[in-house]
Design a protein around this nucleic acid. Structure first.
Lengths: 338, 338
DNA sequence: TCCATTTTTGGCAGCGCTGCCAAATTTGGT
DNA sequence: ACCAAATTTGGCAGCGCTGCCAAAAATGGA
């Protein structure tokens, strides 16, 4: 736990003040460009700071400054996973936009575990972040209590199916599932199966599935069969899941996957077995990963606005928007597999 | 920039002390479990803290504590991109291991731009991180100066082809390229092409390519043809690149891609045109993305230990290891496309 | 019971910075 | 050249916490 540490102390604002022969407050003003100071003072401070290699200590700055006036802050971010490109995409949108405003993000990975999220939130809050960005709407009671008590902006990303704590940015996973089923039904498929990963952990996938099933029953159809792999979402799991499902219910004419990863795996499975897609079985995914557009037959899937969600989340932190839900929707990618 | 702020002040250690009727130092000791205190004091403090919903302020803690004794710290991380799953994988290994030790990571995305990295490093250093984890060995002079002056542990991930500042964890990209070429040569391919993305930005890919070319010339072969797409690495770019290359040099018998993304795109291109792989053209990628294992013909590629690199980087932060290079190597995935 | 140890406790300086305020300096109108 | 107003400046308290130290309380041996 002990880290290597240089002997010499780091340069402080007092050192710069001494070097530039001005007061500490002048240095502070010049370096942040706020308040007024003479041209001469400005030059001397800048030069002294450069000569000494001064690096401001934001820890001290944030502690001293009264939160809402300090320019630079931390934003805490909790995502469930880094293994699924969906979440890095969110981060990408978020950090891209945040960078421009001088915020820095501290990230935590909850591994889809609410208890882990609870711990992460507690840890993140202790850095007195300017805001916290979470994934999904479901949190432990203690997490919610702490979030409320923190009195900062809270953004919940991705899922709009339910009430949020403050700002919610995303799309309706239920509606995605529903629309996916509608698409399959309209294309004439009737014996529709589902291949998914662990739904008890991935609540968004569970909501999509719920919406999907609802659309089927509205159309007077039931789910033809389903295969849930115990594992995380992955191409290998999707392939195995599809093969298991088709072995059990060979007359299935379309399969909805919890995820494009899974769907891509299913597609590979079909290629391997020589099954025509969608002749033998139609495939439908979710998220529209970039890669699916390069497939010989583009995957039929639903584009979800991940980058935009990250960006909107970042923007909502700074624009003083009222609490509420920002629904960014989703879009059918017709593709050629369903 | 102004963030929504609750009226009431947050609970401080002084509030807890008052509530528990003990001194501030006792609260501090109990909450961190260091120093000695009576059972009775411990109970009262814990109870008071819980009742008040106390959240420690690590900003103050880190500022006051003398760095190497404070338990919890920040670690700054700079990666070039989040769009390529390789980097989230690094982060995954890193944060997974870091979590256990109470470190929190602040991340920055440089977008493959050394100038952006320079800015990020400066920003990160101002949080007085316990350590900084960067990607690659190439940095601007100013970045290096700042890094040296910071007097903290610096870890450079992924690339071991050159001298590092402190600790280097990764593999030799040059050797990966070299071994990839050797494999193709040994399998009998002679008219070998290359399809890559923007090498001026992705220096690791450039090193792989250099190693690849070196192996070809050692074998008395030249690069048969190459196609560099201006874009970032992606499946679509790989597909377009392969198609352009094959149009220009139709007798090419094997293609090395800068990346599995690109190779997967190339594979899709072959499927689309009905080209037998490896009959018409063999394909070889890099990184062994999970997805490639689910392909009907697993991709021939090189497994790079991304998770392990992240983990080793995290471990090297805390184990007081001497400066030096940790080479985690790589492994051939034979696959069926080359 | 008393005194020497040991354990527990609270006070307070200080980490580096910013906001506030009063003092010093500059400006500009006459 | 003089004075009022505007601008620039430096000192210092304090953000919340921790380390240090001396004081207080508990312990134990004779």
């Amino acid at each position: 736990m002990t880290l290597h540490q240089m002997p010499g102390r780091l340069v402080t604002i007092a050192d710069v003040a001494r070097e530039a022969k001005v007061g500490e407050s002048t240095v502070s003003r010049v370096l942040r460009g706020r308040g007024s100071y003479s041209k001469r003072a400005g030059e001397r401070v800048l030069e002294a700071a450069a000569r000494l290699g001064y690096v401001p200590n934001r820890l001290a700055g944030a502690l001293a400054g009264n939160a809402d006036s300090a320019g630079a802050q931390l934003v805490g971010v909790v995502i469930p996973s880094l293994a699924n490109i969906v979440f890095p995409d969110l981060l990408r949108g978020l950090t891209g936009e945040l960078d421009a405003t001088g915020f820095q993000s501290v990230i935590g990975v909850s591994d889809y575990d609410p208890a882990r999220e609870e711990t992460l939130v507690a840890g993140l809050l202790s850095w007195r972040p300017a805001a916290l960005v979470l994934t999904g709407l479901e949190h432990t009671d203690l997490t919610v209590t702490r979030l409320r008590a923190a009195g900062i902006r809270i953004v919940e990303m991705i899922d709009t199916d339910g009430p949020g704590l403050d700002i919610v940015v995303g799309f309706s996973n239920r509606a995605v599932g529903h629309a996916s089923a509608r698409h399959l039904i309209e294309r004439g498929y009737r014996r529709i199966g589902y291949v998914g990963h662990d739904l008890s952990r991935d609540l968004r996938a569970a909501k999509r599935f719920a919406g999907f099933e609802a659309a089927l029953s509205e159309a007077g159809l039931g789910l033809h069969d389903r295969e849930l792999v115990a594992d995380r979402s992955s191409a290998a799991a999707g392939r195995a899941g599809l093969e298991a499902l088709m072995a059990r219910a060979p007359d299935t004419d379309a399969v909805y996957f919890s995820n494009d990863d899974m769907a891509l795996g299913g597609y590979f499975g079909c290629l391997g077995r020589g099954w025509a897609v969608p002749g033998r079985v139609a495939l439908f995914g979710c998220h529209a990963l970039d890669i699916t557009a390069a497939m010989p037959q583009p995957l039929s899937t639903m584009r979800t606005p991940r980058l935009e969600i990250g960006r909107a989340a970042a923007r909502s932190l700074t624009d003083g928007a009222p609490a509420g839900t920002i629904d960014l929707g989703f879009e059918l990618c017709q593709g050629a597999t369903a």
